Computed example of a mutant assay.
Amino acid sequence: MEEAVLREVAEETGLLTAAMVRKVAVEDKLHSDTGQPRRTSFFFLQASADTSDAWDHQVNGDGDDAGVTFACRFLPFPLEQPLADDQDVWLGHIDPRWTTVTVGSQ
């Protein structure tokens, strides 16, 4: 699974030097759009020190997202807004200071 994560990161972001730190969590819940069961694994990765703060990456290959350009960027912690589908809840399992800022906690 770790190899698949690094391969997907490279394909979707162009980051070829990301390194696996550890698995953070596995979450089983219904997909927010389809209502179908979904299992998501979350991993803590580290980018190399010379990685830009923001970049565009065009996906290569022949998959459904071939040719799509993603605008990639790193965000400072704690996050000011939650990630899609509340995926940021797992950040506190890596470092409690990384939890998303909530109203009244600033």
Rank of each mutant, 00 (worst) to 15 (best):
E3P: 13
A4M: 04
V5F: 09
V5S: 05
L6T: 09
R7T: 12
R7I: 12
R7K: 10
E8H: 10
E8K: 02
V9Q: 01
V9S: 01
A10H: 04
A10N: 04
E11A: 06
E11P: 03
E12V: 03
T13G: 07
G14N: 11
L15N: 02
L15S: 07
L16Q: 08
M20H: 05
M20D: 00
M20W: 00
V21H: 00
R22L: 08
K23C: 05
K23H: 09
V24A: 12
A25Y: 07
D28R: 11
D28N: 08
K29I: 06
H31V: 07
S32V: 10
S32M: 04
S32W: 07
D33P: 03
G35W: 14
G35I: 04
Q36V: 08
R38M: 15
R38H: 08
R39K: 06
T40K: 05
T40Y: 02
T40Q: 13
S41T: 12
S41W: 06
F44T: 00
Q46H: 01
Q46I: 15
A47H: 01
S48F: 03
A49K: 06
D50F: 05
D50C: 10
D50S: 09
T51L: 07
T51C: 06
D53F: 13
A54Q: 05
W55L: 02
W55N: 02
W55A: 08
D56T: 09
H57E: 03
H57N: 05
H57M: 00
Q58P: 00
D62G: 14
D62C: 14
G63W: 05
G63V: 09
D64G: 11
D65H: 00
D65C: 11
A66R: 05
A66P: 12
V68A: 00
T69I: 13
F70R: 02
F70G: 03
R73K: 09
F74C: 10
F74P: 07
F74R: 15
L75N: 11
P76E: 03
F77G: 15
P78I: 10
L79P: 15
L79F: 06
P82D: 12
P82W: 07
L83R: 10
D85A: 13
D85F: 03
D86V: 03
D86Y: 08
D86A: 01
D86W: 07
Q87E: 07
D88A: 13
D88N: 09
V89M: 12
V89K: 11
W90M: 12
L91E: 03
G92P: 08
G92K: 03
H93E: 03
R97S: 15
W98T: 06
W98F: 14
W98M: 15
W98I: 14
V101N: 00
T102C: 01
V103E: 06
V103L: 09
V103I: 06
G104V: 01
G104Q: 02
Q106Y: 10
